[in-house]
Each structure stands twice: as C-alpha cells, then as structure tokens.
C-alpha cells in the first residue's frame, strides 16, 4: 500500500522522519521503563545488609531470591490463586456482558459500552472502599446471607479471601469485557446463522462457532485481567486481612516501610518472571502468538 510519504518525501528524508517521530516516546520508555528493569534486577542482587541510609553494595547476592521466595511463597501462591479465580469469574461475567452488547443490544450498543467504562470515571480506591461498605459485617449482604443461613451468625465476608477476590473481579472486569467485545463484534452474525442452518443447536453453535472465533478476545482479556490482578495490593489491603496479603502488599511494604530494597527487588523480579512464564505458556497453548 502506498502511503503519503511514498508520494511526498524523497527517500532519505522519508527514512529519518520515522525515527524523529518515534524517538521522544521510545526514549522515554527506554529510560523509564526498560532501564528500570535493569536497576530492579541489580537491586535484587544487592547485599541485604545495606539500607537506604547506608547505601547498598552490589554483591551478586543471588540468595536474596532464595530467601525471598522461601519467606514469601505463601503470598506468591495466594496472589496467583486469587488472580486466577478473579480472572475466571471475570471471564464468565464479562463474556455474558460482552455477548449481550455485541449481539443483543441493538441501538443501545454504544450506551452500554460507555457504561462498561463508566466505573473508570470514579476513583479506583473509592469504588473499592464502597465494597468495604457493601460487604461490612452489619451490611445488608451479610445480613441477607445470615438470614438464609448461607453464612453463620458470626460469619463475615470482609477480611476474607472472598472479599479480596470479589474486589479484584469487580475492579478488573472492564479489562475483560472490552477485548471480548472487540473480538465478538468482528464475528459475522451470518456464521452463527449458518451454523444453526446446518443443524447446530444454539449451545453447539456457540461452542463450535462463536467461542472459537472469540478466542483472541478471550486470550487478550484474561491476560489484561490476570496480570494487573496478580500484582494488585489495594484490594487485599482495603478488603482483606493480614491473612489475605498478596505479593504486592509485601513488595510495597518492603520498599516503603521496611526499606529492604534487596528483598523487595528480588520479590518483584520473581513476580515478573512468574507472570511472563505463565503468559508465554498460556499464549502458546491458546495458540494466538500474534497478539501484539
């Protein structure tokens, strides 16, 4: 395809313009996104005996990793577990909503899409605090559950894994809905009609046609939900208890209150490696490697 500069610009100039345009943005990301990873990795290998005040020595202290993983494996597991459950819940809830918008909303499509992102318009923290109120011990949800004996009289939701997962699910739902909607919307409705014309029941039609065609959305949505959920600590902090601390809580308190940079760095790198590994494995099994 011919582009404007094929026409307009002489060859030499045409090549340089691209570089000049990308340079400021790429440089910003290189200096403040890529290089920091290097700093983080080197921080994670510092001698743990140092401190922010006395300074750190680079001693290739790989045992930081062993120590961090050993000490915080509970938090790591919990993070992956909570994020996994929240992602699965988001997928189910989000698929229904995305499907309704893509195929059933008719002229309300645009309005519903705006409503999907509307929660972003209030503060993430305030919405999470609202859940604290909803799930409070004397709130109506707990009352109702106690009345029908789904919850014991002294049972509670707040400060339990349930509350943390509920918060994660709620907060990251739009990240699931939008990519799902984008891939569902591209599906030619006639394909679904063709499948029912070819004797597929609605359920089989969904499983054999709609779902496979929406796989790119499923993959993108689960990644965009799982990754931030696994690193989140706000939900665990506001809705959970010390027993529901996730790896994010640990990293942030190691950095900000305990000042143990070496351990915090090691834990951060570990989290990143686990996530990258999980993503690669997942993308490979899902068979959509051209996601980028």
């Amino acid at each position: 395809m011919a582009t404007l500069d094929d026409v307009a610009a002489p060859k030499a100039k045409r090549k340089l313009t691209g570089y000049w345009l990308i340079l400021p943005g790429a440089l910003w990301l290189a200096v403040f996104f890529v290089i920091p990873f290097y700093s983080l990795i080197s921080t994670s290998l510092f001698d743990p005996k140092g401190s922010v005040l006395t300074g750190y020595d680079m001693t290739w202290h790989f045992s930081n990793y062993v120590d961090a993983i050993d000490q915080y494996k509970g938090q790591i597991w919990r993070s992956l577990w909570y994020a996994g459950v929240a992602t699965a819940l988001c997928l189910v809830i989000g698929y229904v909503l995305a499907y309704a918008i893509a195929f059933k909303a008719g002229r309300w499509k645009n309005l519903m899409l705006v409503l999907v992102i509307a929660p972003f318009f209030t503060s993430f923290l305030l919405r999470t605090l609202s859940w604290k109120l909803i799930l409070a011990d004397d709130g109506f949800v707990v009352d109702a559950l106690q009345t029908v004996h789904l919850l014991g009289d002294d049972g509670r939701l707040l400060a339990t894994p349930f509350a943390v997962i509920a918060g994660l699910t709620y907060n990251f739902l739009p990240f699931m809905v939008l990519p799902l909607y984008a891939s569902l919307e591209k599906i030619d409705i006639r394909l679904i009609e063709a499948s029912s014309d070819l004797y597929a029941s609605p359920l089989r039609g969904f499983l054999k046609v709609t779902l496979p065609l929406s796989m790119p959305g499923v993959v993108a949505g689960t990644l965009l939900t799982f990754i931030p959920a696994a690193g989140d600590y706000v939900n665990a902090q506001l809705l959970g208890s010390p027993n529901t601390r996730m790896v994010g809580n640990t990293i942030q308190s190691l950095f900000t209150t305990q000042g143990d940079y070496a351990a915090a760095g090691a834990l951060s790198v570990t989290l990143m490696i686990i996530i990258v590994g999980a993503v690669l494995m997942y993308v490979r099994t899902a068979g959509t490697e051209d996601l980028v």
Partner: peptide, 14 residues
C-alpha cells in the same frame, strides 16, 4: 501488560 507493582518498583530502583 506489566503489573504496576513491578513497574513502580523498577522505577524506584532506578
């Protein structure tokens, strides 16, 4: 696609 906690701590390290 990176967790915020990792980006935040990397920047702090830098």
């Amino acid at each position: 696609a990176s967790p915020e906690i990792v980006m935040g701590s990397s920047l702090l390290a830098l």
